[in-house]
């Protein structure tokens, strides 16, 4: 256990050095704040074009909060899609980390943790900006903290699932990340309610932890769930389902990881260089 924590800490440190140190902090924050704010403003503009209104309706709050928190999920998925690929082909360190006594799984958890933490900043900023619209916040802080923490576990396991797939593929590492991000965006009620989806997709969405995560986000930030379908679930049920699906995701990602690790060693892809 101590070894795992040390590996996670080291990987977090490394990721911070790579992600945050690449330019001066000012540039880093501009990049981290400007990008999400731009995306949110675009969404607001689109909303305005479609509805002709901008003042604080519940639908707008739904979109605004969903979109803000999606910044975390989307960013983590996209970044992690490239991680294995970069370590293997750009930095050429993957094989050296693999042959170390540290678990590569722990390493990936650490890397994902930093990405997660860094992407929380833009969300805080977007929430503050929301006061100007204004979004009718009714924060439930304990729930928000719980949601955020468990969101981390969910995203780490989703990220690991993603990475174990990229472990076996030569190219398309990043695109797999984008596909994951897109999937969660469409199916988890980020900017439109689940009920607008075809029925079979709604059913599929019920197996995704992200569905409950966004529901819990809205409940803890807006104090209500406006999604007609998910609002039928009591808070406790929602927490329970989130817990359960996250656990399944974690187990699934571990199972995937160990079979992929074996397959990667059999196929010999741990030090593959695809000239790009």
């Amino acid at each position: 256990m101590r070894e795992h924590i040390r590996t996670i800490k080291t990987a977090m440190w490394l990721d911070y050095q790579i992600t945050a140190n690449w330019t001066r902090p000012i540039t880093f924050f501009t990049y981290n704040i400007a990008k999400p704010v731009g995306a949110s403003l675009l969404l607001l503009a689109m909303y305005y074009v479609v509805t002709g209104r901008i003042m604080g309706t519940m639908a707008l709050s739904f979109i605004y909060v969903g979109n803000a928190f999606y910044m975390i999920l989307g960013q983590v998925m996209m970044d992690l899609g490239w991680l294995v690929h970069e370590d293997r082909e750009h930095y050429q360190t993957l094989k050296y980390i693999m042959i170390s006594p540290s678990s590569y799984y722990s390493y990936l958890m650490g890397r994902a943790a930093t990405r997660f933490l860094l992407s929380v900043f833009p969300v805080i900023f977007l929430l503050l900006l929301g006061l100007l619209i204004p979004i009718p916040y009714r924060f439930n802080y304990p729930l928000l903290i719980f949601t955020t923490l468990f969101g981390w576990i969910f995203m780490v396991s989703a990220g690991l699932l993603l990475n174990t797939i990229t472990l076996l593929t030569a190219r398309y590492g990043g695109s797999i990340g984008e596909a994951f991000a897109g999937l969660f965006y469409l199916l988890s009620g980020v900017i439109f309610p689940l009920s607008v989806l075809p029925e079979y997709l709604t059913k599929f969405a019920l197996f995704l932890p992200s569905t409950y995560w966004f529901s819990l986000v809205r409940r803890s930030v807006l104090g209500v769930e406006t999604d007609p379908f998910l609002s039928q679930l009591s808070l406790n049920l929602c927490i329970g389902l989130f817990f359960l699906t996250t656990l399944c995701f974690l187990v699934l990602s571990l199972a995937f990881y160990f079979s992929m690790d074996y397959l990667a060693r059999r196929k010999g892809v741990l030090e593959m260089i695809t000239t790009y």
Partner: peptide, 18 residues
């Protein structure tokens, strides 16, 4: 091989941690 953004010392230290 190596993380270009780290210094030599940092790179080596990191691997020792693994």
């Amino acid at each position: 091989s190596g993380y270009g953004l780290l210094t030599v010392k940092e790179n080596l230290w990191m691997f020792s941690q693994f």
